[in-house]
């Protein structure tokens, strides 16, 4: 995250030294580093099938990267572990086993119950690891390093694939569409869980309390239906907003450097503000971000487990 600003600073400093500086626009820079790359100019062009454009933008690419990393690392670790003579987990397998046990015993079982724990742990574990890795990759400045290498070493052309990849944010879970898709899976899982535990018709009947005045049902049923949609929506908004918000905070604080440099018309002012205010604050917020990455993955999975548990254990 810092390297790309170094890059901006170099470009900006060069511009400032030559003539009057071209105005630094913090809003545009921040959006450039947080939002998805434009759909009109995708990284990989794919045909439109049934009205859906399958072209690959930055966030889709990041989804693939995350999926590949999770798939390769987890299956490689587990296969190597199974080949051992004595089944004693060590190294990374130990950590993986700790995560699996944590999700099973601390997130899934208290909410879903012992009977269904083996049914729902795989889904919730997948959510947890996927969100954790996707969030975590957003904190690693891979593309900023690529950009820096490109700027100094490779010097590829204006429309090269490398230059295109640099547009847009790295965190796939900061995109509302991604989290909405995840929450849709939760939405489906809630219905499936209720149907598996009570049967399809009983699940829908369970949603409202029994034996009340018929007049109350007229109010209650619409409210319940709305509530059914609101829960996944809350999941969607929280994850995406948290991931976007943290990045915007870091970028906004770092952009002080350029704003002050511009305001006083010299680079020393910017560097001074950067050393005293921006960099320490950004480091602190980055630490907070590491925490947020963990907590958001945890909260998403916990709430999924809670909602599935609510469909299984109906109290009225």
């Amino acid at each position: 995250m810092k390297t790309m600003f170094v890059q901006e600073a170099i470009r900006h400093g060069a511009a400032a030294a030559e003539r009057q500086p071209g105005k630094f626009d913090p809003g545009e820079t921040i959006i450039h580093h947080v939002a998805n790359s434009p759909a009109s100019d995708p990284l990989i062009h794919l045909p439109t099938i049934a009205g859906i454009d399958f072209s690959v933008t930055k966030h889709v690419l990041m989804l693939w990267v995350v999926a590949a990393i999770v798939f390769i690392v987890v299956s490689w670790t587990v296969r190597r572990y199974l080949k051992q003579e004595r089944l004693v987990p060590k190294g990374f397998m130990n950590a993986l086993e700790f995560v699996v046990e944590f999700v099973r015993d601390e997130i899934t079982e208290p909410n879903v119950g012992r009977k269904w724990v083996n049914t729902w742990t795989p889904l919730i574990l997948t959510f947890f690891i996927f969100i954790l890795v996707a969030n975590g990759i957003g904190l690693i400045p891979i593309f900023d390093l690529i950009g820096l290498t490109d700027y100094y070493v490779l010097r590829t052309g204006e429309h090269s694939f490398l230059k295109q990849v640099l547009h847009g944010g790295t965190t796939a879970t900061a995109n509302f569409n991604v989290t909405a898709a995840l929450a849709t899976i939760t939405f489906g899982a809630i219905i499936v869980a209720g149907s598996m535990a009570h049967g399809f018709v009983k699940h829908w009947k369970n949603m409202v309390p029994h034996g009340l005045n018929p007049f109350i049902y007229v109010i209650l049923i619409p409210i319940e239906i709305l509530g059914m949609f609101v829960r996944p929506f809350a999941l969607t908004m929280r994850l995406a907003a948290n991931m976007t918000g943290g990045h915007i905070a870091i970028l906004a604080i770092l952009s002080f450097v350029f704003l002050f440099a511009e305001m006083f018309g010299r680079a020393t002012a910017g560097i001074g503000v950067g050393l005293v205010v921006s960099v320490p604050l950004a480091v602190l917020i980055s630490m907070l971000e590491i925490l947020v990455v963990l907590i958001q993955a945890y909260v998403f999975t916990l709430l999924t487990a809670v909602f599935i548990g609510m469909a299984i254990h109906v109290h009225h």
């Binding site: 509530g227 609101v230 809350a234 929280r238 916990l302 709430l303 487990a305 809670v306």
Partner: peptide
């Protein structure tokens, strides 16, 4: 857990 769910649902709604 459940309380967090309820609070997020309140805001989400």
């Amino acid at each position: 857990g459940p309380a967090a769910g309820a609070s997020y649902t309140l805001i989400g709604a």
